[in-house]
Simulated assay, not measured.
Amino acid sequence: MKYTKITETPSHYNDLDQMDTKTILQSMNDEDKKIAFAVEKVIPQVSKLVDALSERFEKGGRLFYIGAGTSGRLGVLDASEIPPTFGLPHERVVGIIAGGDTAIRKAVENAEDDTQQAWLDLKAHNINTNDVLVGIAASGTTPYVIGGLKMARAENILTACITNNPGSPVTEAVDIAIAVNVGPEFLTGSTRMKSGTSQKLVLNMISTALMIKIGKVKGNKMVNMQLTNDKLVDRGTRYIVEGLGVDYEEAEKLLKTHGSVKNALEAGPK
């Protein structure tokens, strides 16, 4: 099936190397302003995914991200922030990048062209029908991602994708396709720019909405965050001050006694 690869179409701006610094930056910012509006258009698809995810999470299911390059790194980033922010074990949201963890910092040549490796990587985590797999691919053609999604779907695992090319092959390989059309990049083909930013926004929406739905947020507070440094202990203490109406010293004692904001709020003052 023929489709237009929007991420490879020429930039709306010419002669970038002749621009002064302010013009470069203003032009980039003008393009960035379009991203949130493009993401807004895919909210129905994101909503469908979050509802399906929360249903499976309540039964012990997990969320897996797979991707290559920038897309893979963004999936790993989102997954890595779940334990400290929401107190879930690392194995509940897992980010896998083509080429393994080495590829987070250094490109691993040809890793994204292997159609079999993603499924091998997923099988190492014992992925099953309780889980959900989200493939991230700006181009929509990454063999590593498409191969993994096709195998997962064949095993009756719910699949979704985040891409920046509507109608691309990855959208045909999933149950839920999230295709964010941000238009051509400021620097032609550089999908770490608008495409990557849009992927980060969608990932924020997916994981944050999921955590809210499964009870990891109270009001507008991160009540299950890990208390791994002084800043977070202070934040948690202030949440308890606000929630229980106690002074700061008592709130800090409650936090340290009960181990989390949620537990302290539920226990209340003595």
Rank of each mutant, 00 (worst) to 15 (best):
S11L: 15
M28P: 02
E58N: 05
N126M: 14
N14M: 15
S27N: 06
Y13R: 03
K123I: 15
P83Q: 12
K48S: 05
E31Y: 01
V46Y: 10
V50S: 08
V39E: 14
L25A: 13
G99F: 03
P89M: 07
G140T: 01
I136S: 03
T141S: 09
I146L: 10
I24M: 05
D51R: 15
E109P: 00
L74C: 13
S139D: 01
K123R: 14
M19S: 08
K41W: 03
L88Y: 04
G61F: 09
G72A: 06
I66P: 00
L77R: 05
N130V: 14
K22S: 08
K34Q: 11
G95E: 03
E58A: 14
V42G: 03
I146M: 05
K41P: 02
P44T: 03
H90P: 08
T142F: 13
L88G: 02
Y13W: 07
V42F: 01
G100F: 06
Y13D: 08
H90V: 13
T115E: 13
L74M: 14
L122I: 13
T70R: 08
L74Y: 11
D51V: 15
G61K: 10
R73H: 06
G87I: 05
N14K: 15
K48G: 01
A98Y: 02
M28H: 07
F86T: 05
G60K: 08
L122S: 06
V132H: 07
V108D: 08
G69T: 04
I96Q: 09
T23I: 11
T142G: 10
A124R: 07
V94Q: 01
S71M: 08
K106S: 11
D131S: 06
G75R: 06
K106I: 07
K48E: 05
V42I: 09
G95R: 04
R56Q: 11
D78N: 15
Y144T: 01
V132I: 09
H90A: 15
F64T: 06
V39Y: 07
I127A: 01
K33P: 04
D32Q: 15
I66S: 05
Y144K: 02
D30V: 11
T102N: 06
H125P: 14
I43K: 04
A107R: 10
H12P: 02
V132T: 00
E112Q: 03
G69V: 11
D101E: 15
I82V: 13
G67I: 05
N130A: 08
A36E: 13
L49V: 01
I82R: 00
S47V: 10
I24V: 06
V46L: 14
G72Q: 03
D51Q: 10
R56E: 15
G140E: 04
G75A: 13
A107E: 10
A138G: 10
S80M: 04
G100C: 03
I43C: 10
V42A: 00
E31A: 07
R92T: 03
E109Q: 06
D101C: 14
I43Q: 12
N29S: 15
I82G: 00
S11A: 12
A98L: 09
